[in-house]
């Protein structure tokens, strides 16, 4: 029998503390890549579209300075954790994530938007978080928090395409999602797209794309080509910033791919508003 390697002990309280800090960091500023894309969009827009982008950029500066949320919809906390298999979390990891979320929403005066789905009773502390966990090699824990607003989440779609629909079907799914929903999703939007897997696999892959920087390169030449063409088609719709018409309906289309069944081609399109907040840390 092999002897066991060194196991790193990580107190659950450290996870809670990290999640709390990441939530507050995420909601009170925009990532640099999003700001860069917003500035670039403002430079090419005119009229109401230009005015709206100027307000969004000014608002971000005010939020950052005041350390208050850019958007009042401080979202449902979606937390991605990659946990090294050589780490032992001392205490409940799930409880720690929820404690961190609850503490952030309480102490930073963030909006508590989570309620029971059918009775619509608010849970009072914005928990439970949505937690996506993977076991990975190593002794580190990587945590990404993306508080998700629902004006945009509501406009997301899942397509279970036939394999024959291929690349055209993928592009049409993305464009259709934007055509039907981007105007109400606080454009310019970012579209996270998951292609392949299963119904839920595609959806999680789509959400994972939203952690990528705007303008980051997709993993394969095919995906890079599809991202470019999808962005061209979405921006050709002319919906524009906040739906006032313009060249910038989306700042980016970010596509991820995973193997799927020979009988299917799932495509999930997760719509993200311009307030594309996320923050990460490795502990």
């Amino acid at each position: 029998m092999k002897t066991m390697g060194a196991i790193r002990i990580l107190p659950a309280s450290k996870v809670a503390e990290t999640v709390c800090g990441l939530v507050i960091d995420a909601v009170c500023r925009l990532p640099d890549d999003v700001l860069f894309a917003l500035h670039a969009a403002k430079d090419i827009e005119t009229g109401a579209a230009h005015a709206v982008l100027a307000q969004i950029i000014e608002n971000e500066a005010l939020a950052r300075a005041a350390r208050r949320p850019c958007c009042q919809d401080t979202g449902l906390a979606v937390v991605f954790i990659d946990i090294g298999q050589d780490v032992h979390v001392d205490g409940s990891l799930i409880d720690a994530v929820n404690l961190g979320v609850a503490e952030a929403y309480r102490k930073a005066y963030l909006r508590k938007s989570v309620l029971s789905a059918i009775a619509r009773e608010n849970t009072g502390d914005n928990t439970p978080a949505i937690l996506h966990m993977r076991m990975v090699p190593g002794d580190r824990v990587s945590i990404h928090v993306t508080p998700k607003g629902f004006g945009s989440e509501n406009m997301s779609r899942l397509f279970m395409l036939k394999p024959a629909e291929g690349e055209d079907g993928i592009l049409e799914s993305i464009t259709q999602t934007a055509r039907l929903g981007a105007a109400n999703a606080c454009p310019p939007v970012i579209l996270g797209v998951g292609v392949g897997g299963t119904m839920e696999g595609a959806a999680i892959l789509a959400k994972r794309q939203l952690l990528r920087a705007c303008g980051s390169k997709a993993s394969t030449p095919t995906l890079r080509r599809l991202e470019k063409e999808a962005l061209r088609r979405v921006n050709a719709l002319g919906i524009g910033p906040m739906g006032f018409g313009g060249r910038t309906t989306a700042l980016a289309v970010l596509i991820g791919e995973m193997p799927t069944h020979l009988a299917g081609l799932p495509v999930a399109v997760n719509v993200q508003c311009h307030c594309a907040r996320h923050a990460g840390a490795v502990i």
Partner: peptide, 13 residues
């Protein structure tokens, strides 16, 4: 009237 979504601090001022 439409106000700018996501410009929450600017609007609350």
């Amino acid at each position: 009237f439409a106000a700018t979504g996501g410009a929450a601090i600017l609007l609350s001022s």
